[in-house]
């Protein structure tokens, strides 16, 4: 580990297209995300939040710059090693959850464990423990489609933390939820998921949940235009 730093991004640049169609989505972005910190990346649509998130999580290769996780530049690794890094170090909660409707809730949560080659029954047992953490143990055998939006979000969180990652990445976690449910979810993340050994990064443009952030990084037009510690007291 690099002290308290979970992820360090150095001068990341990403552009799409060539010639006249070339669009630069992220322009020389540098920042650090720390353990024990809930970091928000905020900004209007098209500001480059998701592109930045993808580059720091080993999903999208930057054109310039580097990303350090555990002191290693992840973009110098082979693709299978990056996949392993994502599996072991990073947990994802997607905007649309992307749960498998043909699997039960507990099987969905067990996916990262199964990818880690854990025995099927053992993986389900561990997944059940994580479902208990998110308060959905009684829904374990239901398919995700039978759950409410907030419950599906919590299943996605359980899946993300089941692999025991150091870094959790949320993409617009409240976009599909009503204000009250959205706040409850983020409050849950802040109080139950975040800890001193884990860094949580949330991409959002939902200002209703800003109050829960430890740090807020503002983006606009591909640039980081501000980075501030949140002074608002978390409820």
């Amino acid at each position: 580990m690099m002290g308290n730093i979970a992820i360090k991004a150095n001068a990341l640049v990403k552009w799409f297209g060539e010639g006249e169609t070339k669009t630069t989505a992220v322009k020389s972005a540098s920042f650090e995300a720390n353990f024990g910190e809930l970091l928000y990346i905020v900004g209007p649509s098209g500001s480059g939040k998701t592109t930045l998130l993808s580059m720091i999580s080993g999903i999208l290769k930057p054109n310039e710059g580097n990303v350090l996780v555990d002191g290693k530049n992840i973009w110098e690794m082979k693709s299978d090693d990056i996949a392993d890094l994502r599996l072991h170090k990073i947990g994802f909660v997607f905007q649309d959850y992307h749960l498998f409707p043909r699997l039960t809730t507990v099987e969905n949560v067990a996916i990262p464990l199964i990818l880690k080659k854990m025995d099927w029954n053992e993986a389900l047992k561990v997944a059940m423990e994580y479902l208990e953490i998110v308060g959905l143990k009684d829904r374990a055998q239901l398919p995700p489609v039978k759950l409410s939006g907030g419950e599906q979000q919590r299943v996605a969180i359980a899946r993300a933390i089941a692999g025991h990652p150091d870094i959790l990445i949320f993409d617009e976690p409240t976009a599909s939820l009503d204000g009250d449910t959205g706040r409850k979810i983020v409050e849950f993340v802040k109080t139950k998921i975040l800890n001193a050994q884990r860094s949580v990064i949330i991409v959002t443009h939902d200002s209703r949940i800003y109050e829960y952030a430890d740090s807020i990084m503002k983006m606009e037009d591909g640039k980081i235009i501000g980075f501030e510690r949140n002074t608002v007291t978390t409820p």
Binding site: S57, I59, S79, D80, A83, D84, L85, R86, L87, H88, F92, F94, D96, H98, L99, F100, I111, P112, L115, R159, G163
Partner: peptide, 18 residues
Amino acid sequence: ENLERFGALKAIGAKGHE
């Protein structure tokens, strides 16, 4: 129909051969 979920699996850490 499952394409996005396969993509999600990839993001989580599934390798191409898997």
